[in-house]
Write a protein that binds this DNA or RNA. Structure first.
Lengths: 343, 343
DNA sequence: ACTATTTGGTAAAACGTTTTATTTAATTAG
DNA sequence: CTAATTAAATAAAACGTTTTACCAAATAGT
């Protein structure tokens, strides 16, 4: 029994009414008498009528789908984000189409192009270097867009992200508070503004705390480097920095690579090296003695992004364009930054 | 400059041809002369023409979108899966709409209904108890469906998952091989067949190795229990099992809760307790002394699922209905199951 | 009692494609 | 030199909605 989908036309036939009438009743639009309404609703209900989204989309230009373009849907940060976004969007009857760019520019461009085929009503995008014009052209053509986790300096595109600068600054303060003064940093070589902001916050804090800004104590791990190579690079880096007593990892995956490096080197945390990493994570909670982290407010970021997007979608006002929402992070202090004991 | 999307009709006008001609050229269908073809292609290219997916979908009944319904897109296992699925689907020009059920039956039902509004060409679903009829009705209406990570006993719905029974069996064998004979298990109370299979494999292995099947050495943690409560439950469980020297966690999240419990109890791994967990994970690699895990072949599962789905989509043959693909897992042996040293 | 107005309902156009059936022009066959 | 074939292009219908414009009947206004 291959049940053919029932259409509005079928319902009209079954109820001896017109297509228009059915449509009006179903959408509560026109003025149709109680009795006819009831009859139509009944029949629709009984036959499990569901509107054909394609037809609706074609006619109205609204797909009720939003496009989510992130770096890696499989990662802990974006995965969590994706979940919240889905849940929030669903409340407004929206569904999510996603795609991971893996920080590949071409993939990002392709995706924006694909999705712009009248398929989605709006975009949530994690920006990457080189995508500026593509996204701007989206905005120019009045497509609602919200950036998360980053932004484009000089472009008026609404974005919401953690306050990277202050967060990194706070990390350094935490080190200092606990007595660590020779602090190194491991970051990635993507041109991402969020990483730059973290670096800037880090440096500013060093300066403000009167620590020497030894730029040799910064390692940039190439993004496309394999995990094993990355760990080795970090090991080598740590090996070279003889006087370093604290290390700051600017991302989640660098943090775990770092832990592995530290473990392989047989160093103790925080005895030999205090540690703070960006992006809280189950690992950092569990790994002895507990790693101090900067916890991103994923829920709030995602919620805000959806809210802003929906605002744009409903009222076509673009006064949201100047939105620059930076949400504070939470420093989760754990064993890796216990007060330094000097021998 | 609000660029209006250009349509096939516009191109026809610009090139002094008909709509049909343009459509034929763009799809390589009819017989159109080289010169006109070139002209049309040029104009289309120059104006950045992209077909309106809604219109195409309405006319052809094909959306080029597949629906992915998982338990939690944010989790490590499903996230990784989602990523592979997206990448593989993209090769065939498909995009993914996702949704997390959080093991909530109603949400699952709702999602299936929503997506069936002619919105998706096929489904990849992680089954949950109670969804049998909904999914079967999908199959009945000739919608391509593939289940991943589980299946419905007694229903002929194609599915691909890890060989749960054998995997759990192997875990026990690993314990035994290393000298651990009093093996407990922690599992969840969802009615999921994959968990049942794991339990069954576990018990069968105990029996085959001549170990006593002490059913008191099994803890079922309620799925909706908070993390803290879960950890406490596990702590209590471990506390009660005085002679237990090895413990098997049937899922990822139970494994990490278990690690926390063990850490809180101040027990050493594997000295006091050997550990194996299902689902490999960065944590298990990093956490000292390294936790032995059953690594699911996520890539292969996802790839196979997509392949089977595409097969169904392209050739409307339903002979795939009896597909029961169980892919072997890989036991990653780490420090948590080092050979037992008896004092 | 005639004109306004409201009420309940519908026909038909439009959204942008794909595809079938047709037309016209050009080529080949006999 | 016609008749048959083929090549090139197109008109028009259809997919399932939403929505504008319109109509007829009933009600209200004066």
């Amino acid at each position: 029994m291959i049940k053919k989908k029932i259409s509005i036309k079928d319902i009209a036939k079954l109820t001896d009414t017109s297509i228009t009438t059915v449509s009006f009743v179903l959408n509560g639009k026109g003025r149709i008498s109680k009795e006819i309404s009831k009859k139509i609703l009944d029949v629709a209900q009984k036959n499990g009528y569901e509107p054909n989204r394609m037809a609706v989309g074609l006619r109205t230009g609204v797909s009720k789908v939003i496009g989510l373009i992130v770096e890696n849907i499989g990662g802990p940060f974006f995965g969590e984000m994706a979940k919240v976004i889905e849940e929030e969007a669903e409340k407004d009857g929206y569904r999510i189409i996603y795609c991971s760019t893996n920080n590949n520019l071409q993939k990002g461009k392709d995706m924006i192009r694909m999705l712009s085929q009248q398929l989605v009503d709006g975009y949530i995008i994690t920006p990457m270097k080189g995508l500026e014009k593509d996204i701007q052209s989206l905005v120019d053509s009045e497509k609602p867009v919200v950036l998360i986790d980053g932004y484009f300096p000089g472009f008026d595109i609404p974005h919401v992200l953690v306050n990277n600068y202050e967060s990194a600054y706070n990390a350094v303060s935490c080190f200092v508070r606990s007595g660590y003064k020779n602090i190194g940093m491991v970051t990635a070589d993507l041109g991402l503004v969020q990483l730059n902001d973290r670096s800037a916050g880090f440096k500013a804090a060093l300066k403000d705390h009167g620590l020497k800004d030894n730029s040799k104590m910064v390692l940039k791990v190439p993004y496309d480097m394999s995990k094993a190579d990355g760990v080795n690079a970090i090991k080598e880096f740590i090996g070279k920095q003889k006087q370093m007593d604290g290390i700051f990892f600017t991302t989640n995956y660098l943090g775990t690579m770092g832990l592995q490096a530290i473990r392989d080197l047989g160093l103790s945390i925080p005895g030999d090296l205090a540690v703070i990493s960006f992006d809280d994570n189950e690992i950092f909670n569990l790994y002895p003695p507990g790693i101090t982290t900067i916890q991103q407010p994923t829920y709030e970021i995602a919620k805000s992004a959806i809210d802003i997007l929906m605002e744009q979608i409903s009222s076509r006002k673009m006064d949201a364009s100047k939105i620059d929402l930076q949400i504070p992070s939470k420093l989760i202090e754990r064993g890796s930054t216990l007060t330094k004991v000097t021998a």
